[in-house]
Design a protein around this nucleic acid. Structure first.
Lengths: 111, 111
DNA sequence: ATAGCTGGTATACTCTGTTATACTGGTTAC
DNA sequence: GTAACCAGTATAACAGAGTATACCAGCTAT
């Protein structure tokens, strides 16, 4: 029981460490939803700046959560895609989207 | 489809706004697990400082996610408890714990 | 030609979450 | 009496996440 709890706090903190911050999950979600192009992802996430997107994409690529492919066509074409590992965040993202929707319902009810 | 996606990004960002940061979810988790006392909660979360715990507890109380009850015994006794609203984070927390455990498995396999 | 798209980078700055350390006042235990 | 527990607060400082704004080269459509 006690041992179990310690293990779970650890797991929780590990997860927060990986997907922490304001933008990681929205970016992962966007790419998992099929957005591949830089500007496409940018437009799909309200409020994000090119700088933050650029930085986070690099980070996610380094951590093997997404792949970046440059097609040497003209004009040059860059595509981001999620790896299988990245897709393992699916349940987390879905749970958070579900919570956010319920939350909004409650806010609306009150007003 | 497109409308749906916009709604979901919004919901996701709303959720991140509420439970964002390094400590909120671990604290909520700890209290939901039955930890009631300040030092008890503190000890249950590796790395947290009294200052951060104090601040986050105040914040969570203001947002009606937890209740703070002072029992005027001697010595004074303070108990934190989660509200029903707080418990609605259950699925999110469970999903994140599950991810963290899987993640650790993979790390161990590789080494 | 000029406005707009693509995929970004550069610079500078803010802000606040987070850490570190110390301290308080009361109670209990040895 | 002194050490340790409780429930925190005070002060200072830092690091880096995040913002704002401008800019670049290359291409396209009008």
């Amino acid at each position: 029981m006690i041992r179990n709890q310690q293990e779970e706090v650890q797991a929780l903190q590990d997860t927060i460490y990986v997907i922490g911050g304001k933008w990681r999950l929205p970016i992962i979600n966007s790419i998992c939803n099929g957005n591949k192009r830089f500007r496409e992802i940018e437009r799909s996430i309200p409020g994000i700046t090119t700088r933050m997107l650029s930085r986070e994409l690099k980070d996610l690529e380094m951590n093997k959560l997404i792949t970046r492919t440059v097609y040497d066509e003209t004009p040059v074409l860059v595509e981001y895609e999620s790896t299988d590992y990245c897709k393992s965040f699916g349940p987390v993202i879905l749970a958070m989207i579900a919570w956010g929707k319920e939350h909004k319902k409650k806010i609306i009810q009150k007003s």
